[in-house]
């Protein structure tokens, strides 16, 4: 039995996961909480949010995120990939910045549009 706080939403449900009963989750308020409890003990994943370098835009950094959760252990390697990106504005919201990030099947996408400076 393992106790966890669910991080799926701000509600923060207190979950209990029973490894011996096929990772049965109790204390969750929604199906996503049960899913979180199961994966957190077997293969924890996180959505990565960070920024990448963009030139010629309204701002110097473009916020990006993975379009699905990736294995937690890959976060440092994913940050290193993002650090290599050099974009030129304009960038569209949702634009794919790195497809299939580290072979995870998740794409790194733009969280906002970045208009060219002075546009």
């Amino acid at each position: 039995m393992k106790e966890l706080v669910c991080i799926v939403c701000p509600r923060g449900c207190r979950l209990t996961v029973d490894e011996e009963q096929g990772y049965k989750v109790t204390g969750n308020s929604c199906p996503r909480g049960a899913e979180y409890g199961r994966t957190e003990l077997q293969n924890p994943t996180r959505t990565l949010t960070t920024t990448v370098c963009v030139a010629g835009g309204l701002h110097r950094r473009l916020p990006v995120r993975t379009n699905r959760a990736i294995p937690k252990a890959l976060l440092p390697a994913a940050m290193a990939e993002a650090a290599r990106v050099r974009l030129q504005a304009p960038v569209a919201a949702g634009q794919i910045i790195i497809p299939n990030l580290l072979g995870t099947g998740a794409d790194l996408i733009a969280s906002r549009a970045m208009p060219a400076a002075g546009a």
């Binding site: 939403c9 916020p63 969280s111 906002r112």
Partner: peptide, 10 residues
């Protein structure tokens, strides 16, 4: 759904 701050503002 779960959005980032810029997406919510957008």
């Amino acid at each position: 759904e779960e959005l980032t701050g810029p997406e919510y503002a957008g």
